[in-house]
Design a protein around this nucleic acid. Structure first.
Lengths: 334, 334
DNA sequence: CAGTCTTTTGCAACCGATTGCAAAAGGGTC
DNA sequence: GACCCTTTTGCAATCGGTTGCAAAAGACTG
């Protein structure tokens, strides 16, 4: 029942237990040398006083804080709520603490990096499919272990990445549409500058042909997908099979098709990417490529912990496969 | 171009600038006494070296970290992505840093509190409509300034709260349904134990009568709303006007109605709460009470800053009004 | 220029922990 | 009990800053 307003310090515990401060410190340091009897003494004194070691103080001498910068620029896309949910619980389970950074115009990469250094974070997770790899290298150049989740997949990356290969994903999408008999394919991407848009488009065109019509949504929002599809419809010869570079965009696109009197999937087929929960709602029922969020998150953390132990470890790209979830926006195989 | 791997410290800056360590510290402390000339010296030395003051060290002596614990148990409800987006940007704009806590079975209130104390956070924001006020008082009892966002509204709270009055909201919902000519009202709440469910239900029954049928969704998920509505439909005398205690639940409920061949809003009317972006999608088009997230978040932070300056300041309950957004799930006023 | 008042500066103690080192204590053996 | 070896313990320095205090420097007056 520590009703004192001021923090209990190690010194007070030491006095109460009748031992030195070192003894108290060692009791709370795994693997340190303390006899069973003093440990007993210290632990009961600590309990009575309600002692909690200060991370500020211990961080200062050990150089470790267990703080992980979790930086993202996707705070509007519902898929990322699932990403944040998974990351925060997984970090907590690894006894790490997420310091959240919302990248905006005001709070850019440089401020983020500077801030995270001031707080002596042990590592950084970048969670974004739109940011290019060089965004993350800025952190590693600053001496911070970093793993980029949902990043562009490269064979020889200069920063650690985990995610799916978006080029492959685009290719798979086109192949799948062709396989189901769709003839005139089209791609509706996210913002044109996004790394994932570029890659998914490249893979898609690789199969669908470079003359296939392309449209971009301004951001990962329903209305943007809606608008983009309307532009596609207004285009002379509309396609019958669309690959949308994101689920939210796909849902907006589907609404635009239906508003235009087209039936999905009878007239037009549609496939998205991400596999967010909402896509599975029975009134949405979107066929999509799921990103294995849990696996990706676990791999990110595992790798980050490795990197914190050995910062010189050469960068690796860990790849997972997107999983096709067949639902109602593509016609069935005949 | 600080290519050194190790941190630049204040001492090095002092040596380079040819001044004492105090001078450097004062240069970076707003309001401290430094002459223009030494400030100049220090600043250029700091820039050349790429000096960033360590929050660990300064926090240790000043007792302030600018860290704010942002704790929530709503990482599955898309509405909360908007909440997190707004909170993180607003905190960043106030030069505060969100340390995110995802409350789960494993990581409960006690662990959260203990953890936040170890990190010497300056304050805590609880963002949850399901947690009762006493959840937050645990933090203030521990000496941490805390403001509970989306909390139960009480006239004389013993912890600071900001949000709408859910009892009033329930009452408004019932009145509005009656006004539009709906005769047999019913309430579909979130989990029965949630503070907001209790309050919204109380207000609703206050107007609709205590004999009005009540159903609960197991959580804030589409399927749970879907199931709850199916139970309502299976109930002997189905209602024609529903108030759902959350948008996601309302969307699931609407899908269940349509799956059962009922037309919304012709046969049955439906109104939700929260006003999340998705509710405005044209293929959802849910009539709902919007929570003014921006205003709430700003008020929370403003109040929290006050509280950090004066922890003895007596608790206040700040109330905002829910805003009715009329869309397509209720019939029009005739 | 001496005298007074204000501003700036550096010293040194302190915030709350960790840790290398040497001394002290404990354990075995003969 | 003397000896040696291992384990435990406390001292004191250290991590990177802040800040009260007194001395030094500057500004202003007559």
């Amino acid at each position: 029942m520590p009703s004192t307003k001021t923090r209990v310090t190690l010194k007070e515990v030491a006095e109460r237990a009748g031992v030195s401060r070192s003894a108290v410190s060692r009791t709370f340091t795994p693997g340190a040398s303390v006899s069973a009897s003093t440990r007993q003494l210290v632990e009961s004194a600590a309990n009575e006083l309600g002692y909690k070691p200060s991370v500020l103080a211990s961080g200062l001498s050990t150089g470790r804080t267990k703080l992980i910068g979790l930086v993202s620029n996707n705070f509007r896309n519902p898929f990322y709520l699932e990403v944040f949910d998974t990351f925060t619980t997984a970090l907590q389970n690894s006894d790490l603490r997420p310091l959240l950074v919302n990248l905006t115009e005001d709070f850019d990469a440089e401020r983020a990096q500077s801030m995270l250094q001031q707080y002596s974070v042990d590592g950084v997770v970048v969670a974004s499919s739109t940011l290019p790899p060089q965004f993350s290298t800025a952190f590693s150049n600053a001496g911070l272990p970093v793993v980029h989740a949902f990043a562009r997949h490269l064979e020889n990356p200069n920063v650690d990445t985990v995610g799916i290969d978006n080029v492959t994903c685009g290719r798979l999408a086109a192949l799948h549409l062709q396989e189901l008999g769709y003839k005139r394919l089209s791609f509706i991407g996210g913002p044109q500058t996004a790394a994932s848009t570029t890659d998914r488009q490249a893979g898609f065109l690789d199969v669908a042909g470079t003359d296939c019509p392309i449209f971009y949504a301004d951001d990962y929002a329903f209305d943007s997908g809606f608008d983009a599809m309307n532009r596609a419809i207004a285009n002379g010869t509309p396609a019958d099979g669309y690959f949308c570079g994101d689920d939210v965009i796909a849902i907006g696109a589907k609404a635009a098709l239906e508003a235009a009197g087209k039936s999905v999937p009878a007239d037009v087929g549609l496939i998205g990417v991400n596999g967010m929960t909402i896509s599975g709602w029975s009134n949405v029922n979107l066929t999509t490529f799921r990103q294995p969020v849990k696996s990706i998150v676990n791999a990110v953390i595992e790798r980050l912990v490795e990197l914190m132990d050995d910062p010189a470890s050469p960068p690796r790209a860990i790849r997972f496969e997107p999983e096709l979830i067949e639902r109602g926006t593509l016609r069935q195989r005949h």
